[in-house]
Amino acid sequence: MLSRTADHLFWMARYMERAENTARILDVTYRLSLLPQNGEEVEAMWSGMLKIMELQDAYLAKHPAYSTEAVLEFMIFDRDNPGSIYRCLRATRENAHAVRGTLTSELWETSNETWLKMRDFTVAKLLESGPGAFFEWVKYRSHLSRGVTIGTMLQDEALRFIRLGTFLERADNTARILEVKYLNLLPGADEEQAHATDYYQWSALLQSVSAFEVYRKVYRDQITPLRVAELLVLRADMPRSLARSMKEVHSNLTRVSNARSAETERLAGELESHLRFGRIERIFEGGFRKYLEDFRDRIFDLGCRISDDFLIPTSS
């Protein structure tokens, strides 16, 4: 298929996934901000989240202080913020529009409809019904888009690049969601025991990645940070985990393999194997936060390589 087409499909999927995960991160942070605590803690929570999303500077350029309303507006509606849900859904739709002929009409219409509806949302409407309903809506539009993709697209290269975009983005985003939780710890602090008693924070984190019931089912025990990390990092049967995401990245990559992609495939395979055979205790020994940062760097590198190998090849 055309490299440009593959590029649009890849980014269409990444932006939809990013919109969904942004909604998830906002949702969990918003819910935590409602727990009894002082104003400073709430501010620290929002600033930590923005830092992990690498949007702190952009936010501070526009807003003097951290407040729930201002952050929500910035992260949902701000047209100048490339990470806002508004911008993600617009980019999803623009990429879909550029290759609408390659998509099934149902998939294109789903993306177009999502965007048309997004334009109708306003801050006032959002606050009136509560942000939770909006985050639900974003998640469901993403579910719908993924379902329509799998339910209607031919299983050819186009689908592979869409899936590649989805899981590469998810791998990055899940790592960020975990980092939000660990951000406020001092280096060298006992990460394993930190906040161990803070049931609400951990359960909110699990809920944000739809893993609360899954956790109960898998561990049948109380919630501990180590197990939460294991579930979201190493369990390949957990659909939003790093292991699952990398498994999908690797398998989709091998199926679009071309003459120049061998090294990219090897790196993806290597990362997948680490996750498949890794132990959470060992990961914590080396520092969990550092592990997550390294992981995201490698995801970033993979993204660049996929782009060079398939999406923007140089002439002939």
């Binding site: 490299s3 087409t5 679009v256 999406l311 002439s315 002939s316």
Partner: peptide, 23 residues
């Protein structure tokens, strides 16, 4: 395929499109 100008190139009087599997 729906192509844009940037997707095509000419080499020895033959037109090619840039694809994920080469020209």
């Amino acid at each position: 395929e729906l192509v844009e100008g940037q997707d095509l190139f000419v080499s020895e009087d033959q037109v090619f499109m840039r694809t994920t599997q080469g020209p």
